[in-house]
Amino acid sequence: MSENNSNIQELETKIAELRKSLNELEGNLEKAREGEQHEAINHLEDYINEVDTKFSSFQIFWKTLLEDLRK
């Protein structure tokens, strides 16, 4: 009975440790993602004129669509 109890405690401790590590990893992942977002925002000049690409974007799409249809 006491051996079983200690097994349960051991498993609980392991789960708590894993959960802590997982939380840390998730926190690190979130920070890494946010870092990438900040980096992208630093280059906002490259994206702010994206609205002017609507016609060229449609041309790219149209060309690709026609290529697909020919296949």
Binding site: V51, K54, S57, I60, F61
Partner: peptide
């Protein structure tokens, strides 16, 4: 329309 440019 802008998003269509990513079609490739």
């Amino acid at each position: 329309l802008v998003s269509l440019g990513h079609v490739r």
